[in-house]
Write a protein that binds this DNA or RNA. Structure first.
Lengths: 340, 340
DNA sequence: TCATAAAATGGGAACGTTCCCAATAAGGAC
DNA sequence: GTCCTTATTGGGAACGTTCCCATTTTATGA
């Protein structure tokens, strides 16, 4: 229990060198140290079981080897996989990752930003609910955005090509014979985020010369509860059977929940109505019916975000990069082919 | 970019008090400060946008407000929900949570334990793969175990009553008419963990006077891949149709994957064979067929673990507590009633 | 009003490291 | 062997806070 005071002085004493030499050995900056001294120090370290005090080191050189990763909800498979990928990439670099959940709440996002400002973290990877990049920019925080930001170029970004992904889904539905396609946009999140999927929808409908029915545009929370409510909304549309043949959902959780709620209400998804998701979370393959969806490369995205953060920390003045990953169509059983 | 040096001296200057008073205001130890001084300091803080340097504070009082949470895999819904619950409970206390994944690997677990020793963390919540509690105990680490440890009383533990949960599942299968019940144990993890489910199985079979067929005891990795392989193993049992009517799986992921692989091989789960899971992860309700399983109260478990950690940090010498949460049966569609 | 206790405040030291600079040792070239 | 350059080493200061102790101010009671 009682620590016999274990610091670099102690290590130096055992190794027969000064604290400065010990410091040079343990810090990665690596001033020149002779082979002999280095070995002696390492031997002393392992003999004493010394570990460097990160507070003192951090205090001196203001490096914490701590990254803050802010996502909407880590219990959501989409995000937990991204978190995993970020961790896998950052930990070998000696970083530990603190995870925060915003629950899509602006207030919570802000509180994490505040937390960041304590100087405890070296870098930030965030899926911003707000588009309030100014706050990040003016604070000069080494940060990477994960999400579907569009025009922003002043900051490193990893995202998916929402427009492309939505169009891909729509085209598939169209090719399967669907003409009465409903779209579901997110009720939270940034305007810009919302608009990209919606723009794809309007553009597509127009390009194909399909009627734009305002009743076919739904809004829902991207969650299981959102799916339940959405099912109600859809069934509440007067004469929905003749007006809606397919639904393009904002994410898989929503789509899966929608399917289940519809079935519970006597409407068989993948037969009476087609559903297409977005994300391809692992269990999308295991639902009933298995969900046709657009896959987003989560692992790559997380990895890339981590790499961008490392680069930015290494050189804060480099020009930001923007990586947009295209979605790919994963065909399963939730979309029926129909003949018009 | 250039910081005009923002420390408690600066705050004190603006507030018209000394650094000591500022320190008393910002640190939670709360020596007595007059109302007036407190207000002045807080005003100065918000005017300057001051945030306390955690390194310096940590260096002085060796408190980091950082907890390390080590789980097998955060991308696994069961664990991601526990992580979420821990975070939700710890963050209001001012703690940030670092998450580590062991992938059920001893080596990785050890490297996290090593990471902990850097003194960067105030506390540890861990699902230990090994049962190597000694390492934690002798290091005097404030720690809470999450998992199914049995005899250990020297350390705070939150777990599920594995024996009870397994028996509950077996009894349900039995009541549904099943007699030829297979069990799947984990191929990784501690012996003790393994044995508790297995003990429940043997005890139950014996109590009911059912034949113990060694071919009905399977071993699998608790993952989707494990389920695929398990399906192969089951179908490879000579004359399995007459020897296996139900399978008790180690977790839901495994069960769901098993169901899907079986169906792909032409065996209809919930009809040709019954499957029961363990955990009740959110998507268990959304599979085909919806999975009958044993629910474990993840949110409560995570919350309790966080609370125990807080208590232990507050008083390192208190007697450890052990909380075992019973499982509850969630009946869905993956188990058929059969008549003998 | 005065003595006394309690509350509030300020100053110095310490936490353990890294950075900077000066000093010494080691090689190389002549 | 001597001188110069370079590699290596050591000592002091600084990082920003909290703790401890001494001092001052305020409140309390007779």
């Amino acid at each position: 229990m009682k620590k016999p005071k274990l610091d670099i002085y102690e290590v130096g004493r055992l190794a027969g060198v000064s604290k400065s030499t010990v410091s040079r050995v343990i810090s990665d900056t690596g001033g020149s140290v002779s082979r002999k001294a280095k070995d002696a120090v390492n031997a002393a370290i392992s003999e004493l079981g010394y570990t460097r005090n990160t507070f003192a080191a951090g205090l001196r050189n203001s490096k914490s080897y701590l990254a803050l990763l802010v996502v909407p909800d880590i219990a959501n498979p989409f995000w937990s996989e991204i978190v995993r990928a970020v961790q896998d990439r950052l930990e070998p670099e000696g970083y530990s990752v603190v995870v925060g959940n915003t629950d899509w709440s602006e207030e919570r996002e802000l509180s994490y930003l505040r937390l960041f400002r304590t100087g405890r973290f070296d870098g930030l990877i965030i899926n911003s609910v707000t588009d309030d990049i100014d706050l990040i920019l003016e604070a000069g925080i080494p940060a990477v955005l994960v999400g579907e930001r569009s025009e922003l170029t002043q900051i490193d970004t990893v995202g998916t090509a929402t427009y492309q992904a939505a169009t891909l889904a729509l085209q598939y539905l169209y090719d399967a014979g669907h003409r009465r396609i409903a779209v579901v946009t997110s009720e939270t999140g940034s305007e810009r985020f919302l608009s990209r999927r919606f723009t794809a929808y309007t553009d597509f409908m127009e390009a194909k010369g399909l009627a734009k029915d305002p009743d076919l545009v739904f809004t829902a929370h991207l969650s299981a509860e959102g799916g339940e409510r959405l099912a109600g909304d859809i069934l509440a549309v007067p004469g929905w059977k003749d007006r809606i043949s397919a639904v393009l959902c904002g994410n898989d959780i929503l789509a899966i929940s929608l399917q289940n709620t519809l079935r519970a209400r006597g409407v068989e998804p993948g037969r009476d109505i087609s559903v297409i998701g977005m994300d391809d979370i692992p269990i999308a393959a295991l639902t009933w019916p298995a969900l046709t969806t657009i896959r987003k490369p989560r692992a790559e995205m997380g990895k890339k975000a981590a790499e961008l953060l490392m680069k930015r920390i290494g050189d804060p003045s480099r020009t930001p990069e923007k990586h947009l990953y295209p979605g790919t169509l994963v065909i399963r059983d939730s979309v029926v082919e129909i003949r018009n």
